[in-house]
Nucleic acid binder design. Structure first.
Length: 543
RNA sequence: GGCCACGUGGCGGAGUGGUUACGCGCCGGUCUGCAAAACCGUUUACUCGGGUUCGAGUCCCGACGUGGCCUCCA
């Protein structure tokens, strides 16, 4: 088994080998916490969660330590909590509050929202989730920090002070621009942003800038100020992973300038030839065929989507596309993903014991994923496993289950969460069910995504307030609207089913169909079958 | 102006030189009193124009189109 990964820096797919066999070290750029994360933010989180899972699988197999299986995987994903957008948001949302306090409120709230969202997407927490503000000043524990890094850059002649700022001197680094394939002389400085006159080169970027009294700031050798955007990742990656580590990931848009500048800072400060052995970048997300643009309003937050779909649906939709290709978020694709998940969940729920089964190692699917995280072909394989498992042995179901688990789907024991056919039980339920279709879907999603109880009760009471309805959730996760007295209804339903079975037994199909119609009016859909042993006609309620 | 992706059937999405991948949907069939489910099957494709080749969705050139980056968007 070997893992092959595409490296943006060398533009090649190579075999991945950890720099140190005892641990694999990965750093991924995380969110700037000023607002709800959008579906574009979800992609790198899901993609690198898949990689994290795969790396641990390989580590456990002992692929990198002669079969011992003791390699650890360290995954660091930062939280950017110093940024002018945060400052603006804090001033807007908490007017009158001292800025630092308001900023902390904004960042803590947003970071918590983010964690809730990505958990619903089936993403495991990274090993470390450092916040930028904890790494501005030198630390008691001696971990790398931004101020020290900047000092080193100045000492080594890679940075200079000008009008209160500290700037990185790109001309001091001969191979600046390698990652993005940009050539300093061919770039068009100022193409989008005016060039500041105090820079030696237009491409020089800020390491430290002054803060006015009403901006967040830290006391530094260059006065009270705050760090530039890129330096935080240089500091936090070094703090947890060392000066040179295995994998650095993020979105395609971060290649330039963010990652380019990270490389410049880290390599020049540490005097190393590389920063990370592999640079991995996920492609963009579009929304309904158009580029996602916050300024054009063409974007969807993860939170909005989770209000409608189980996180598994978003995850599957994301994994349907190879991570380096563009991915289009459309409602149609969500429906497709949902439909497949429902099938899978139905099979697993009905044929597989979740509690105490010992799962096999999903080696076959891991082999496919090992080709540069080929999730698309892995899903094709998963579909093969599914159709084999459907009429297969216990072993085959277990392999399917184990493979699903490696892909990170959470709710495959609850087919009801994916079931798009809404049902109500009780006379005249049809109208209320169709009237509340959106709310029922929202409720299903809320359960699937383990939304807070308040959210669930708000939606439930919205549905229940409209008339004599009670919301029930079956053990399969199916949301059902129940009218009137459930016990009476159940008794009535059972009677009708019994009468119908009798009618069918005496081949009175007119009566049988009439009774099925009566049941349908009560929201009950039947599925007929013959008892495999006695051959007696039976029926079950479709839920 | 420079750099970089991408363009496959109703939809999604694989496929880097040689039998309609696969999934969703549609349609048909088997089964079933009917329906549902399940199973089986059919259908529709490679943006355009050149070139290389016995043979190209796959390689080369060009055009067109879409998208991204060129200082703080994942």
């Amino acid at each position: 088994m070997e893992l092959r990964l595409y490296d943006t820096l060398t533009k090649t797919k190579r075999t991945f080998l950890p720099l140190r066999q005892e641990d694999v070290r990965m750093y991924v750029c995380g969110p700037t916490v000023y607002d709800f994360a959008h579906i574009g933010n979800a992609r790198p989180v899901i993609v690198f969660d898949m990689l994290f899972r795969l790396l641990r699988f390989f580590a456990k197999k002992g692929v990198w330590d002669e079969g011992k299986g003791q390699t650890t995987v360290t995954y660091v994903r930062n939280i950017t909590d110093v940024d002018d957008k945060i400052n603006n948001r804090a001033a807007r949302d908490y007017p009158g509050m001292p800025l630092n306090e308001a900023i902390r409120k904004v960042t803590e709230k947003t970071a918590e929202q983010f964690r809730t969202d990505v958990k619903a997407l089936g993403c495991e927490p990274p090993t470390f989730e450092p916040r930028a503000t904890d790494f501005v000043l030198p630390r008691l524990d001696g971990k790398a920090d931004m101020v020290t890094l900047i000092k080193q850059l100045i000492e080594r002649g890679h940075a200079y002070e000008a009008v209160g700022e500290v700037l990185f001197d790109v001309r001091s680094m001969p191979d600046y621009g390698t990652l993005s394939g940009q050539n300093l002389d061919e770039m068009r400085p100022g193409a989008r942003v005016a060039v500041d006159a105090h820079k030696k080169s237009p491409l020089d970027f800020v390491l430290w800038k002054q803060s006015s009294g009403d901006e967040p700031g830290w006391e530094s050798p260059w006065g009270r100020g705050r760090p530039g955007w890129h330096i935080e990742c240089s500091a936090m990656s070094a703090a947890y992973l060392g000066n040179v580590f295995d994998i650095h990931g993020g979105g395609l848009d971060l290649i330039f300038p963010h990652h380019e500048n990270e490389i410049a800072q880290s390599r020049c400060a540490h005097g190393t030839a590389t920063m990370a052995n592999f640079w991995m970048h996920n492609g963009f997300v579009e929304v309904e065929g158009k580029k996602m643009s916050k300024s054009d309003g063409n974007f969807v937050t993860i939170r909005d989507l989770l209000a409608k779909w189980p996180g598994d649906v978003l995850r599957l939709q994301m994994l349907m596309t190879h991570y380096r290709s563009p991915s289009d978020w459309t409602d149609a694709r969500a429906h497709q993903a949902n439909a497949e998940l429902e099938d899978w969940a139905y099979l697993l729920q009905s044929r597989y014991t979740w509690s105490d089964a010992v799962l096999p190692e999903p080696t076959a699917i891991a082999e496919i994923l090992a080709d540069d995280l080929d999730t698309s072909n892995a899903l094709t394989f998963l579909r093969e496993l599914y159709s084999r498992a459907k009429r297969g042995t216990e072993e085959e179901i277990r392999e399917f289950a184990a493979s699903c688990r490696l892909m990170g789907f959470r709710n495959l024991n609850k087919p009801g969460y994916f079931n798009q056919i809404n049902t109500g039980i009780g006379a005249g339920s049809g109208e209320a069910v169709s009237k509340n279709a959106d709310r029922i879907q929202a409720l299903r999603a809320a359960y699937a995504n383990t939304a807070p109880p308040q959210v669930i009760s708000v939606i439930s009471s919205e549905i229940e307030s409209s008339s004599n309805i009670r919301v029930e959730v079956t053990d399969k996760g199916k949301v059902i609207l129940v009218f009137g007295n459930r016990q009476e209804t159940d008794t009535k339903v059972n009677e009708l089913i019994e009468q119908r079975n009798e009618a069918r037994a005496r081949k009175d199909f007119t009566e049988s169909d009439r009774l099925r119609g009566v049941l349908a009016q009560m929201g009950i859909t039947l599925r007929d079958f013959k008892d495999p042993v006695t051959g007696e006609p039976k029926s079950e309620i479709v839920q």
